[in-house]
Structures are given as structure tokens and as C-alpha cells.
Write a protein that binds this DNA or RNA. Structure first.
Lengths: 208, 208
DNA sequence: TAGGATTTCCTACAACTGTTAGGCAACTCG
DNA sequence: CGAGTTGCCTAACAGTTGTAGGAAATCCTA
């Protein structure tokens, strides 16, 4: 079915690799074309434009992240699951900073502008939901009731993403203790908060 | 002292305003020049290039943020100070999303490449330190000892920046409860963690 | 009041990026 | 073998970054 060579998936995958090498923002159409050994107009056979390229990378990478995270979450619950989940995301971000950047650099379109949206935004939204579901699974395994699940997910996501973002930005590089040590401590504290949240919402009152 | 008109500060201030209108990434040299009613080469009298423009915006905005935050922190300590600090940052981010973006879009140069760095990175580093000192002040007011101050700052910064980033990205827009309600709850939980950290490090043991 | 110094701003130009248009070539399937 | 499909190309244009060199406006000083 047609001439062999690159296809859309291969282009996006190469773009994701390139993002890790030179940074997400530096992945432009012309740079990517040079890197692939083709001319830039050729890329328009695979993508519709620069913004499509970016959201496609985001969607692709969000799927990879969900794969890696769910693989790490194979077993365990409660604290073990939290550690597996959080470490998987952090390892992913440190191994592939360009990919992780792609994850954060996307805004949700305010109201999905009719049918003129690039073809990759639906994929990106679906991949985003996959990741959200994994976060929800962690929270559920703590036994947190539905009323507080949303809050728990937001709390956990904020802390994890915030820590990783700051660490990647180099904010923790110039002071002791190591970013490693405080990460473990932060997840510990997060675990305590989630346990407390579960106890609070299940009617168990630890005080008295 | 020369012909009157724009100077560097006015250019950067206009660029920051423009970032809030059209987004930090959309503030390019040519767009900024058009917005100011001048030709783009003229901007090179005030800035050395596109990267200098970006770091200069970051430095300028970090100073504004530190001003706003320290004004809000005029009085109070402990929980009150934390709420004032956190709300000041979040209000700033929601009022000026483009400015807040500028805050996060910067990497610390790995080793300050000799003397070839643009002239604004020193300013940005200094402004970053101002903000870091304010965070430290919050933590200190909880009575957390020096050993744990770094950890406490990282924990607090991660949660606050993470929450604001996700909220600004629209991640909290499609589910209940409101981003407002869970923010208050998150700061509450953070307060509890800091109180616990102070108790732990000061030798007080609440259990038994 | 004239002149010099300083600073803002300009036009002209070169290089690169994003994008469209139209066409050639290679492979698969009937 | 022919037709359809698909990957890739050249040509061309608009817009952006950045450089070079020069003109005008203002301040300071003599």
C-alpha cells in the first residue's frame, strides 16, 4: 500500500526522541526534517502543520507515560502503589526531559472550536484521560470515598508534577539535601495525607 | 542623555503586558515591535536578541512576583503567613497567566558558560533568589529548624506551583468540586504537614 | 548659542522557518 | 502490467531573526 518510508507514527516518534536531545521547544519542522534526512515540505505529508506536530508529540508521549506508569503499577496498593506510581513518573521525566516537557506544554482548548481543530487533539485528550485514570486508581486503592477522590487526585498530582518540574528546572541543584532524599520524604508525607484523607472520609476517627 | 523614547525597562514592561494578552510564547521580537509601533530592528537597541528578551521578561516578572508576595506577607506567621503567601502567588498567576508562564519557562544554565551569557541572566537569578527567600521566611515562621528548612521549602513550592500550573492548564476545569475549594483544602493540608514537620524537628513528640 | 555625545529609530539586507502548490517516483494490489 | 496509493521532491512566498550603517532628536558643556 504505497511507497515505504516514514509514516506519521515514525515521524512523531522521531520527534519525541529529538525533543529529549534538544528540548521540546527546539523541535521545529525544519529541524525535524533535517534530522530525518528529508526536506521540510515532505513533513506535511504526515502532519498538518507545526501545532499539529506539537500536539501529536504530546499525545504520543502521554501514551508512553501511561504505559510506563501502568506497567509499574502492576501490583500493590496504598503506599506501595503510590511509590510505584510517583517513581514511574519521575523516572520517566528524568530519563526523557523533553518528552516530559511536551506533557506540560499543552493547554486544553476552551471549548473545542467546532471542527477546525487539528486531528491530534482528540488523541491527546484520550491519552490525558488514561493518565488521569491511573492517578484515580492510586487514590482509590487508599480507600478514599468518591466525594474526596477528586481532591486527592489534585493534591497528589500537584505535588508530584510540581516537584518534578522544579527538580528538572534545576531549582533543587544548589542546596542540600539531595533532590533524591527530599523526594522520598515528600512521597512519605503525601502518603500520610492520603491515609488521613481515607480515614476522615470513611468515618473512622483516629482522635479519641 | 540622548533621544527620549523607549528604554529597556519600558520595553520589557510592555513585553510582560503583552505576554498576559497573547501568551508568553507568542511574544516575539516582531510582534512586540509591532505592538510598540516601532520596527523590529529598533528593539535591538534595547535587547541583545530573542533569548535576552525572554530572560529579561522572566527577571522583571520574578521581581514583580516577589513584590506582590512580600507585600501580602506584611504581617502574620505560621498558617496565616502561609495562606497569605500562597494566595498571593495564585492570585498573581490567575491575574497574569502570561507573566506566570514566564516564571516557569526558564532553565538554570548548567554552569554559567563563561562570560558569553546574555546580560539578563544575573538579574533573573537574583530575582529568583528573592522569591526563594520569601518561601524560606514562611517556613521559618513555622519554627522549622534549619535541617529541615530546605525540605519544607521544596514541599511547599512543589505543591503550590504544581497546583497553580495544573489549574492554569485547565486540568481542574471539568470536574467538581471547584478549583477554589480544593485549593483551600490543599493549603490546609500543607499547613498540617508544616506544623508536623516543626513538631518533629523541635523534639516535641505528639504521640504519647 | 554652537557643538559634541548619546541614544532612539530607521532602511536595506541576509538567513532561516513555516507553508502551499504541483509533480515525480516507488511500492502494493488486482 | 496497470492503477491506486503513498513518500518525497523542487519552486516559491510570507514572516521572523539578526546585522550593518546611517539619520534625527535630545542633553550637556563650552
Amino acid at each position: 500500500m504505497g511507497r515505504p518510508g516514514l509514516n506519521r507514527t515514525a515521524v512523531i516518534a522521531a520527534a519525541a526522541d529529538l525533543a529529549d536531545e534538544i528540548g521540546f521547544d527546539a523541535v521545529t519542522i525544519s529541524v525535524l526534517a533535517r534530522h530525518l534526512g528529508i526536506k521540510s515540505p515532505t513533513l506535511y505529508s504526515h502532519i498538518t502543520g507545526a501545532t499539529d506536530l506539537r500536539t501529536a508529540i504530546t499525545a504520543y508521549v502521554l501514551d508512553e507515560l501511561a504505559d510506563a506508569t501502568s506497567a509499574a503499577m502492576a501490583a500493590g496498593e496504598g503506599r506501595d502503589l503510590l511509590v510505584a506510581y510517583a517513581d514511574a513518573i519521575r523516572d520517566f521525566a528524568r530519563r526523557s526531559p523533553g518528552r516530559y516537557d511536551a506533557t506540560t506544554r499543552q493547554r486544553v482548548p476552551p471549548a473545542a472550536e467546532s471542527t477546525s481543530a487539528p486531528p491530534s487533539v482528540d488523541t491527546a485528550i484520550a491519552a490525558g484521560r488514561r493518565n488521569a485514570d491511573l492517578a484515580l486508581a492510586v487514590v482509590r486503592s487508599y480507600g478514599i470515598t468518591e466525594t474526596n477522590q477528586t481532591y486527592a487526585v489534585r493534591l497528589m498530582s500537584s505535588l508530584i508534577h510540581g516537584y518534578i518540574t522544579l527538580e528538572l528546572a534545576g531549582s533543587f541543584a544548589h542546596s542540600e539535601p539531595s533532590a533524591e532524599a527530599t523526594w522520598i520524604e515528600a512521597i512519605d508525607d503525601l502518603d500520610r495525607l492520603l491515609v488521613g484523607l481515607a480515614a476522615r472520609t470513611s468515618g473512622i476517627n483516629l482522635v479519641r
